[in-house]
Write a protein that binds this DNA or RNA. Structure first.
Length: 423
RNA sequence: GGUGAGAUGGGUGAGUGGCUGAAACCACCAGUUUGCUAAACUGACGUACGGGCAACUGUACCGAGGGUUCGAAUCCCUCUCUCACCGCCA
């Protein structure tokens, strides 16, 4: 969430930036500022009262010890009535704080100045493209047909065991999954990321820390008996490592990577958009996470985008980078670059990565801070990106590399798969 | 699942009603000494929200929430978590 300081100091700018994100913040920002002022005024009175009470209590102790009973009793009576008023003030403080918190949670992050205007995916800006579009001729098969033909993935079997959106990978299909995970993790490690193996279920505090809760509760599977949530991405457990932590500046940027299975309920969509591997309830992903100083976070973002680019290049897929417009970005993001690869049989671009800088928005909820050179604490910036999500990569690999002889594995991946062709 | 013990500052750990925002030690930071390093010595050393131009200062926080009391880390209640032993088990 935004900080009160951000809102107080730059009210008009905040409202203007929120408007770019199609969020009418005028009323709510005014409300936040009023509420905060009210809270401050109440605190001044309450603190003064408490200071007086503390002083009197101390006096009573001294009077008792020196045996001045009557004076002590008199002071006691005085204190009793003061306390009543304080109860009221305390309740007001608490209420104001709670209301503030609720309001702040409903305000999205501000888009940074480099984010283009716009509302819909059509307004996203194509930043960069690369790779070669394959020419598959007339009889190209979509990946779900290829998966069946070569017995790589069994969607119906998944339905039997779990439900739609839980495919069963078999044989070279399963080995391809494992190869990609290792390939991505090894690359991340070589790029300087520390590998983490996080828990796949998290508590409510973690869900809140990264912003899945309280609003997007429905997106996560919830194990109600133990009140734990299945993670929708490794971002949740990994980022929460740094919840309520004050980092040393010399340890920044923190660079973590983690593989995890990801679980998403995602009710709603149907049809060809969700056919095959395009959208699943369970999928595999390697995530990269960075925690950095505000001064350096945009350099980190560039490095992350460049790193993801190396992955799609090594996989020899046609790719493009989109700079998302204000309206298409997530609630918590300040700027987002999406990576898409072209899936040639479906003839469509598939999103395989989303790299974002959240600036201090997430860190404020997480209370993730670092110590500046002058020993002050300041909120960190958090960033993350997929590197990469497997299913759509697999879809594109299968479709783009199909030949009459079989499906060819890109060179960089062969050491990981142990085979060069699926036939 | 059963039984017992516990939760205090970056760490170890003292503290059973006022002199404790918290001893001591370690770590970290600044300085002195010293060819360098080390050692030794001196000092500083929690977080948040306020007030003040500032020096500085108020309040809250000893797992969380409530209660008793003029006054709670300390007493009472509830919850959460951790550890140990037993049982079960990958």
């Amino acid at each position: 969430m935004l900080t009160l300081k951000q809102i107080n100091d730059n009210k008009d700018e905040v409202i203007r930036k929120l408007a770019r994100k199609k969020f009418d913040g005028k009323a709510i920002i005014e409300q936040v500022i009023d509420l905060n002022n009210k809270r401050k005024n109440t605190q001044v009175v309450l603190d003064t009262n408490l200071a007086e009470l503390n002083a009197i209590s101390k006096t009573i102790g001294q009077l008792m010890q020196s045996g001045k009973k009557e004076e002590a009793e008199a002071a006691r009576a005085k204190v009793a009535e003061m306390k009543e008023g304080n109860k009221q003030l305390e309740a007001e403080m608490k209420q104001a704080e709670e209301q503030l918190n609720v309001l702040l949670c409903t305000i999205p992050n501000l888009p940074c100045d480099m984010v283009p205007d716009g509302c819909t995916p059509e307004d996203n800006k194509i930043e960069k493209t690369g790779g070669v579009m394959p020419d598959l001729g007339k009889n190209a098969l979509p990946h779900w047909e290829l998966a069946k033909k070569y017995d790589l993935i069994d969607f119906e079997l998944g339905v039997k065991i779990s439900g739609a959106g839980f495919p069963v990978y078999k044989g070279k299909g399963a080995r391809l999954q494992r190869a990609l995970i290792n390939f991505f993790l090894d690359n991340a490690r070589e790029a300087g990321y520390l590998e983490i193996q996080p828990p796949y279920v998290v508590n409510a505090a973690s869900g809140y820390g990264t912003g899945q809760l309280p609003d997007k509760e429905g997106q996560m599977y919830h194990a109600t008996q133990d009140d734990l949530y299945l993670i929708p991405t490794a971002e949740v457990p990994v980022t929460n490592i740094y919840r309520d932590v004050i980092l040393d500046k010399k340890d920044l940027p923190i660079m973590n990577t983690a593989y995890s299975a990801c679980f998403r309920r995602e009710a709603g969509s149907y049809g060809k958009d969700v056919r095959g591997l395009n959208r699943l309830h369970q999928f595999d992903k390697v995530e990269i996470v960075r925690i950095d100083t505000p001064e350096h976070s945009y350099e980190s973002l560039t490095e992350m985008v460049n790193y993801v680019q190396t992955l799609v290049e090594k996989l020899e897929l046609p790719w493009r980078i989109l700079r998302l417009c204000c309206g298409d970005m997530s609630f918590t993001s300040a700027i987002t670059f999406d990576f898409e690869v072209f899936s040639a049989a479906q003839q469509r671009w598939l999103e395989v990565s989303s790299v974002s800088n959240f600036e201090s928005y997430q860190a404020n909820r997480l209370k993730c801070r670092y110590r500046t050179d002058d020993k002050k604490t300041e909120l960190c910036h958090t960033l993350n990106g997929s590197a990469l999500a497997l299913p759509r990569i697999v879809a594109a690999l299968l479709e783009n590399n199909q030949t009459p002889e079989g499906i060819k594995i890109p060179k960089a991946l062969i050491p990981y798969t142990g085979f060069e062709i699926i036939n």
